[in-house]
Write a protein that binds this DNA or RNA. Sequence first.
DNA 1: ACGATTTGACCGTC
DNA 2: GACGGTCAAATCGT
Length: 218
Amino acid sequence: MKSSLLESKTSDLEKIIVELNRGREFACRLREILKKHVDHVDDEDAYTLVGKIMSSFCATLSILSYNEDSSSSSCKISSLKDRRGRYKRRKTLETTIKETSTLVHDGHAWRKYGQKKILNDKYPRNYFRCTHKFDQGCQANKQVQRIQENPPLFRITYYGHHTCKTCPKVSQMICDSPNDHEDSNSILLNFNSTNNNYNNHHHFLGMMVETVDLSFEF
DNA sequence: ACGATTTGACCGTC
DNA sequence: GACGGTCAAATCGT
């Protein structure tokens, strides 16, 4: 009885998430359409509004995902450590590959989450996710790998699009840089020193800004 | 103290 | 079973 009620609630939640994802997708399409027609101020306002709608969808999805986790917490017999490596490998996510000799800032905040030695590759691959993955549900990822020493050449592979808003006050922006040293660390360019509490799923609601990033091009 | 990075462990896919 | 993508504890930097 209890379990069927739980299943029913879970099913409803899944439906809600599906609908919200559809809404976000529609808003995304609308933004693309508007992007082509931003000629005057009113259009730009409309474009900004669509950006806000998208953020609202992302926020709701983020909260629901968080609650979904916590609602099943009673079933958490396994330890946190057991969750290591439990991920869904991307299959058909849109990718863009770019090769560059200079690692310039691309307008988004990235956070490094891994580095891996790749078979038959001289240099390790560096893994980055959008800083706003948790606070705005942004699914954008990228991989950076040095492919040549002299002259320096890097291959940058982008996965997915940014659904986050790029805040001008973002405190730290990663100029992804597997550097010349062995450990290929990233370089942090500190532009500001505002709060950067990315762990707080609700924090971004308070830092919504009016701007929508239009400049990101792959 | 807190957020970012490092790095070994873990697990899905091939 | 090997490889590659992700997680998360440990560590570092401010």
